[in-house]
Write a protein that binds this DNA or RNA. Structure first.
Lengths: 220, 220
DNA sequence: GTCAAATTCAATGGTTCTCTTGAATAAGAC
DNA sequence: GTCTTATTCAAGAGAACCATTGAATTTGAC
């Protein structure tokens, strides 16, 4: 290596994108931002941190170039700079899933017992959608649905589900989805629906993965 | 969020895979390991660090699960745990390329002026290989070639290139490749060949990307 | 202009990271 | 057993990271 300084500097810079995501709180932020843009206050509530701390994490992401911001009146909205950032987050999650010790236990601690929840793969759902014999339920907040959703899906935010059970046709077979594989909303929805006697399954992963697989979407 | 502790712990664990790569030296290590297993001493030389420091970085990678090790006599060989790790490294690099400020300059500082080097995409090379009118030159060290290479490629390590120019048929159109888009070997090869009057281009990226694209390989 | 709301800034303390140094281990050769 | 080689361990100093706190800034409403 003739000139190690230059090589080191280059690889340090390449590692910057990993550094930006090398923190649980920032990972949470990117996970939410993968659903669409959000204000600082909103994000702070999502990751259960103070606004000041959230702001600092966002600025770190901003400096790394992985996110962008725009001002609208007194609010500032952050969003992912490009789809590559979502790819990075998902790949990173996949690597952790496969290799990080103890991850399954932590997932179980947070999500509860998933073994009794029926799940469905993207391909299965795609086929069922073609056949038209399934109700696809988007249980994310309304704004995320508006920013983009699985084509043919119906929006009932998880917060409204109990009061809007009447919206679901009798005898329907429901598939619920939300933000991704570690999002609790779809799990919760399946539990609620099953208790009410509605046949329900959870899509294995969420909307961003559906987009990544180039399956049909609406909105946004 | 009912139980933020569990969510935070889960996302901290997901961020572990990013933390493992959130360091320039470890990025260099993974880049080399993507070519095949290596001993600690060997890796230390590659990244121009002390053996002790290299060992500590390797153990960090080991703890994260991204790499594995095996003992052979007095040597210990490290390797990537799975292809997902290579995916992660490449995705991370792509994200940095697209978003990290100043990266191009740092690349130029390390690699020198590439503007005069003819380049070729994977698809181009694939077509030329089918046509059979090109000599593909693997300029990585012999052991990396042995661990796997582009089908039909010839091995002339960059260190031997000047003394083995006779091995290259007269009038050949040469495409050189090495470890990846930030590897200097192929650049150097193209410069040497061009100076000697041999028509030469550099494959845009290296062997791991060729494998990732599921293009034909031999060996390993 | 004043006031309120959303966000950022600046300073602090505790934790983790990173490189260095020199000693300790493990395996093979003799 | 001794010696050599490859690797790891242990301790320490300086830097970077992260959550907290309270003040400062920016914008819009009035």
């Amino acid at each position: 290596m003739a000139d190690h300084g230059a090589k080191a500097a280059l690889y340090d810079a390449l590692a910057e994108s990993a550094k930006a995501l090398a923190n649980g709180r920032r990972a949470e932020l990117v996970d939410v931002l993968a659903q669409g843009e959000r204000s600082v206050e909103d994000l702070a509530a999502e990751i259960d941190q103070t606004v000041a701390n959230t702001s600092q994490h966002l600025q770190r992401l901003l400096r790394s170039g992985l996110v962008e911001s725009r001002r609208e009146g007194t609010r500032i909205y952050y969003s992912l700079s490009s789809p590559v950032v979502g790819d990075l987050w998902r790949t990173m999650r996949r690597a952790a899933q496969e290799h990080v010790a103890g991850l399954e236990q932590l997932a179980a601690d947070y999500l509860g017992d998933r073994s009794k929840l029926r799940t469905m793969t993207r391909d299965d759902l795609r086929a069922r959608l073609r056949a038209g014999d399934v109700v696809v339920l988007d249980v994310r907040p309304e704004t995320e649905f508006a920013a983009g959703h699985i084509r043919g899906a119906v929006s009932i935010p998880i917060t409204d589900l109990k009061s809007r059970l009447g919206d679901i046709p009798d005898g329907a077979d429901v598939v619920a989805y939300c933000r991704g594989p570690y999002c609790v909303y779809a799990d919760e929805a399946v539990r609620v629906l099953t208790r009410k006697g509605v046949a329900a399954a959870r899509l294995e992963d969420g909307f961003p993965e559906w987009v990544e697989a180039r399956l049909p979407v609406s909105g946004g």
